[in-house]
Design a protein around this nucleic acid. Structure first.
Length: 381
DNA sequence: TCTCATGATTATAA
DNA sequence: TTATAATCATGAGA
């Protein structure tokens, strides 16, 4: 239905002036030049103002129904239906309101006023044409959406959260048992956040759709009294959606913050220093002292050591970094330890090959690397 | 509670 | 990117 049709539909079936009269501005002016019609126009305008005010009040009452339902009466117009039928002017409106509306709709000056409003409207629509443009997607909302998706809060449930937890656990290291306990704890908390987020989102969407319907019905109802184009309704809907999307953005922001806090707490807990177990330290020391000339394990060697020790590759790198610097700083202090591991390695090597001698044992591969400790075959300095 | 050991982090240089 | 050096923070033992 185009604007003109809608406007014309609003005119049909109403008492007072004929359509021919309504279409003729002269006839309106003729009416206005008379004293009585001027009084009528004043009355009708007052009634419109009153209805507009009451509509807003009614809208508020619907959103925050503090008043007793006893104040509300049924519709006097069977065609408007109740709330279930979607008619906002139906069941639930004050009787006083319905009477005034009925009086207004039957007023003999209404078609004339409608015609004037149509003229004004046409000019207004022309002046605002082209103003409305499509808004580009908000970059902040996009960022929040991406983050929620990456963290596994929005989008498909499986994967995201546990992947993030696994990444956090891997970055921080730790024993597999501890990791799995904290991992599941993290997942449970993330699932809680996810649940709250989705339930709130649903509420917002429902509220948005209810409010949009309400406004649209209100505008449809008002279009019987004043001309309202579908474009205007669209614009109003867009405004409402924009308002609700700003609320939605706040929800998304809060959810992101909650995830960040959860994650940082999880990481902080993992960051707590824990000594490697004895076996892991032995494996690392063995490698270090048996490669004293070049204590820089390759990536493959690091991976192998990490697997043997049950730690991450980056922890192996940290350990070697610390070990090198501390050994270099205080060789004397590490001498005893170095001798111990040198003997151990020598014995191991001897077991593997009976032909192996102390001379070519990996315990003494030094040639220009870190200073090696002096030892005798029996392990004494 | 103090001290030392040790894993992690950060800044810097190569 | 990786190694080094300095430093921090925490665990463990006396």
């Amino acid at each position: 239905m185009d604007d003109q049709t809608r406007m014309m539909t609003g005119l049909t079936g109403l008492g007072g002036l004929s359509q021919a009269d309504v279409g003729d501005p002269d006839s309106v002016r003729k009416q206005q030049s008379l004293g009585q019609p001027q009084q009528d126009i004043g009355d009708i305008l007052q009634q419109i103002m009153a209805i507009t005010d009451e509509s807003l009040d009614e809208a508020q009452a619907r959103c925050w129904p503090e008043d007793s339902p006893a104040h509300w009466g049924g519709s006097d117009d069977p065609t408007e239906g109740g709330r279930a039928g979607g008619g906002m002017a139906g069941g639930g409106l004050p009787i006083n309101f319905q009477h005034r509306k009925h009086a207004l709709n039957c007023h003999r000056m209404k078609p004339a006023l409608f015609s004037v409003l149509c003229e004004i409207k046409e000019k207004t629509v022309l002046s605002i044409r082209g103003v409305q443009e499509e808004d580009p997607p908000d970059p902040q909302i996009m960022r929040l959406d991406n983050m929620l998706l990456a963290e596994g809060v929005s989008g498909p449930e499986k994967g995201g959260g546990s992947a993030a937890a696994a990444a956090a656990a891997a970055a921080a290291g730790g024993s597999p048992t501890d990791s799995s306990i904290e991992h599941s704890d993290y997942r449970a908390k993330l699932a809680q956040i996810r649940q709250i987020y989705h339930s709130e989102l649903e509420k917002y969407e429902q509220a948005c759709s209810e409010f949009t319907n309400h406004v649209m019905n209100l505008l449809r109802e008002q279009s019987r009294t004043r001309p309202i184009s579908p474009k205007e309704i669209e614009r109003m809907v867009a405004i409402i959606h924009r308002k609700f999307s700003s609320i939605q953005m706040q929800l998304k922001q809060s959810t992101c913050e909650a995830v960040m806090i959860l994650r940082s707490r999880f990481l902080d807990a993992r960051r707590k220093r824990r000594n490697f177990n004895k076996q892991a330290t032995e494996v690392l020391n063995e490698y270090f002292y048996s490669h004293l000339s070049n204590p820089y394990p390759s990536e493959e060697a690091k991976e192998e050591l990490a697997k043997k020790c049950g730690i991450t590759v980056s922890q192996v790198s940290n350990w070697f970094g610390n070990k090198r610097i501390r050994y270099k700083k205080n060789i004397g202090k590490f001498q005893e330890e170095a001798n111990l591991y040198a003997v151990k390695t020598a014995v191991d090597a001897a077991n593997v090959s009976a032909q192996a001698s102390q001379a070519n044992s990996p315990a003494t591969p030094n040639s220009g690397g870190y200073p090696a400790p002096c030892y005798t075959p029996d392990g004494r300095l």
